[in-house]
Amino acid sequence: MSDPSVVPSSVVSRLRAAGCVFAEEEARLLHAAAAGPAQLDAMIERRASGLPLEHVVGRAEFAGLRVEVDPGVFVPRRRTEFLIGRAVALARPGAVCVDLCCGTGAAAAVLLDAVPSAEVHASDIDPAAVRCARRNVVPRGGAVHEGDLFAALPDGLRGRVDVLVANVPYVPSAEVALLPAEAREHEPLAALDGGADGLDVLRRVAADARGWLAPGGRLLVETSERQAERAVAVVTAHGLPAEVLRDPEWYATVLVARRG
């Protein structure tokens, strides 16, 4: 568009009529991303139909980075910036870092940008997520692997991982239907559904994490406030003492476990 700072009021009105709570902000993003009036109109239609804004514009802002987001791939949440902030704080220069269930690879990209000389690997079971993550991670010097949790990783990482970020799905199966339509209809179920109590994938990660972590290595997992106590019990049962960190502003709850 010729002047991205001037957003037609009709764009805001159409988005507001479609139920977009932050219509003004979304209008600015769509207007700036569109190459011309025809593309802007098409983007507004896609957003009004319920497609996540990040899927419409093809990107998301995450921890100061612009991350590419493909249709059908899990959108990085702003609250997850708390998780990756803790991970960066724990990673020394040259640290070996892993981003499990990486989605777009947003966490891996931040680690690569923020931790000098870090060796960063990311993995996801979803081929669409892997394709997207490779565009965000590989140009920054990281590697992305396709497969189920640790099975995707190079065997040479065993016992070497200093920081293991695992943003596992943690929504209980019975509550997936209560999620906003944007998530239910446009993001992969495997990235949302954590099983009966929301902790199934965490249990699988915890069962194998100790063998991949270096001595003193940390496992960081996002969870919910009401699941935190049970999540701690899951990881401590596998020899990983844990603490829970909270950010009230973002309603973020992060479990940090350590291999002794």
Rank of each mutant, 00 (worst) to 15 (best):
M1H: 13
S9D: 11
S13F: 02
A17C: 05
A32D: 04
A33N: 08
A34Y: 05
A34L: 06
A38C: 01
A42M: 04
L53V: 07
R59V: 14
A63Y: 02
P71R: 13
V73E: 10
F74G: 07
F74A: 07
V75Q: 05
P76W: 00
E81T: 06
A87H: 12
R92C: 11
R92S: 14
P93W: 13
G94A: 00
G94P: 01
D99M: 05
C102N: 06
A107Y: 00
A107E: 09
A108P: 01
L112P: 03
A114G: 02
P116T: 01
A118E: 11
V120H: 01
H121P: 03
S123E: 01
D126G: 02
R131T: 11
R134I: 12
R140Y: 03
A143S: 13
A151N: 07
R160F: 04
D162P: 07
D162S: 11
D162K: 03
V168E: 11
V171R: 14
S173M: 05
A174H: 07
E175H: 09
L178S: 15
P180K: 15
A181Y: 02
A181P: 02
E187C: 12
A190Q: 03
A191T: 05
L192N: 12
L202F: 00
R203F: 00
R204A: 14
R204G: 03
A207K: 11
R210A: 15
R210P: 00
G211K: 07
G211V: 08
L213M: 10
A214H: 05
G217H: 12
L220M: 10
S224R: 15
E225L: 13
A228W: 06
E229K: 12
E229H: 14
V232F: 07
V232M: 07
H238R: 05
G239Y: 05
L240P: 06
D247C: 13
Y251E: 14
T253Q: 00
L255I: 10
L255G: 09
